[in-house]
Nucleic acid binder design. Structure first.
Lengths: 223, 223
DNA sequence: TGATGTCCCAATGTTGACATTAGAACATCA
DNA sequence: TGATGTTCTAATGTCAACATTGGGACATCA
């Protein structure tokens, strides 16, 4: 939660409002399709409508909500097509991130990947809190994008990151055991290829890693 | 400029403000690094600061401007690293868009590509307005993304589209003749492979198309 | 003289009030 | 009775005033 220097990034109320609403969506307080009324949120969060409005615009950038002219803002629905779109794009982004990070990652960043894998393994051996497992999974990929060091690529990743989080959460709630069974091995293999794999093999694995996730999620979607 | 049905999408003032400022940036009225003051813009566009603010946030999504806490908004600078980042990401996105469109494009959409190529050729044979040529070039790729039909992919494309436009404009202003010499052939080849090429060849060409553009732009950047 | 602290102002962040709109409920007519 | 036009209202879009902040100019001191 803290770097060497927290660098205290003074943020605006809009950012905090966005964080709060995002957390509420992840927690299930606002289910898919729910309407997010500005006045209601403003009163509940004790900030002005302007700030809430700006925060919602931020969530729209992340693809978590949709809004239209005078039609308000609603939480996105999780349809099969949404899943298809997000995972297809993610495969392309992950492929680029991995092959780039293979050249640019520092040994420190690579050890951080090992640490995250160890955390996953510990979590599975322990209480196996699937919610936390998903967070670690995403943090692992965050780290790869950071190591790649391409700001625009990271922005594109963040534009689907929250949606992905929502999807994986739904996957977790439905109780997919084989996700827990394979998540550690798959990431360990990715980390190994990042260290000393050839580019093409790594590229293919990065794509397959995402494809397998997509298939397993789609299999459990009644939509 | 007009589809069969303009479908009159009632837009807010924020969107119009964004369009106006974007055009002003492209026209050179706001050069790279220029500060975009909210009060100034609001007065000039005759809208409130709130709308300007929202419009600027939109331009930030497009990567055309950057802003920080209490430090205002400025037009992005065009450094070598920026070019590197944008074109690298674009290669990955174009690759996915092309391989997807190869499966999903309708014959109508493919003919529209041919039409755009014809427009380019006519432009070169005529006045050779490089500014319009760049617009056609980007419209060509817009069409491929539309044909791919992946909303998230299109969003990711739009997040770098404006920056790309700015880069290509600079490239045009510097007067790169061999861009004009090759642009038609390259796009014709892309269109042909979209119709009847195998996936791997198309993927490679899509990447190379972007790579050649990047190299030619970087060669002319003193930064 | 140069490093440090203080003040000030221009610009952004925030807010509540007012204007406008989309959609639903109702009334009207063929 | 079903389609069309009207009214109403809750919610969003817009606005201008107020609060807060970052950075530079100036003064102060070792």
């Amino acid at each position: 939660m803290s770097s060497a220097l927290p660098k205290a990034p003074r943020r605006g109320l809009a950012d905090e409002a966005a964080d709060l609403v995002r957390a509420a969506i992840f927690s299930g307080h606002f289910p898919p399709g729910a309407a997010l009324r500005e006045v209601e949120l403003a009163a509940h969060l004790d900030v002005s409508r302007g700030s809430v409005r700006e925060g919602l615009a931020q969530l729209e950038r992340e693809g978590l909500v949709r809004s239209g002219w005078h039609r308000g803002t609603t939480v996105i629905d999780v349809t099969a097509q949404d899943v298809e779109e997000v995972y297809t794009l993610r495969a392309a982004l992950d492929r680029l991130a991995a092959t780039t990070a293979r050249r640019t990652a520092t040994s420190e960043q690579l050890s951080r990947l090992d640490q995250l894998i160890a955390d996953m393994a510990a979590e599975i051996a322990g209480t196996a809190d699937t919610r936390r497992l998903v967070t670690l999974d995403i943090a692992f990929h965050d780290q790869i994008y950071t190591a790649a060091g391409n700001g625009r690529l990271t922005t594109a990743w963040q534009a689907i990151r929250s949606q992905l989080h929502l999807f994986q959460l739904r996957r977790a709630d439905a109780g997919y055991d084989h996700y827990r069974a394979r998540v550690v091995d798959e990431h360990r293999e990715l980390a190994a290829l990042l260290r000393s794999g050839d580019r093409r093999t790594l590229a293919r694995l990065a794509e397959e890693h995402v494809d397998s996730a997509r298939r397993s999620l789609l299999a459990g979607l009644p939509d």
